[in-house]
Simulated scan of single mutants.
Amino acid sequence: MAGYTLIGADGRPYLSPVKGTWGGHRRGEIYGRLDCPAALRAIARGGYVANRVLFADEATALTAGFRPCAVCCPDRYRAWASPP
Rank of each mutant, 00 (worst) to 15 (best):
L34G: 11
L34P: 03
D35T: 00
D35R: 02
P37A: 05
P37T: 01
A38P: 13
A39E: 14
A39R: 15
A39Y: 12
A39L: 15
L40W: 00
L40V: 06
L40S: 04
L40C: 05
R41Q: 06
R41L: 01
R41S: 03
R41C: 00
R45A: 09
G46L: 04
G46K: 00
G46M: 01
G46H: 00
Y48I: 02
V49T: 11
A50Q: 06
N51G: 07
R52Y: 07
R52C: 14
V53C: 02
L54R: 14
L54D: 15
L54P: 08
F55K: 09
F55W: 15
A56Q: 11
D57W: 06
E58T: 00
A59E: 07
A59Y: 01
T60N: 05
T60I: 05
T60M: 05
T60R: 04
L62M: 15
A64Q: 12
A64I: 09
A64D: 08
A64H: 13
A64K: 07
G65L: 11
F66D: 05
F66K: 02
F66T: 01
R67Y: 12
R67K: 10
R67E: 10
P68C: 09
P68W: 10
P68M: 09
A70W: 10
A70F: 08
A70M: 08
V71H: 13
V71Y: 05
C72Q: 03
C72Y: 01
C73K: 13
P74M: 04
P74K: 02
P74R: 03
P74C: 03
P74W: 03
D75N: 14
R76I: 08
R76F: 10
R76Y: 10
Y77I: 06
Y77P: 06
R78I: 05
A79P: 06
W80H: 08
W80E: 09
W80Q: 10
A81N: 06
A81S: 03
A81Q: 11
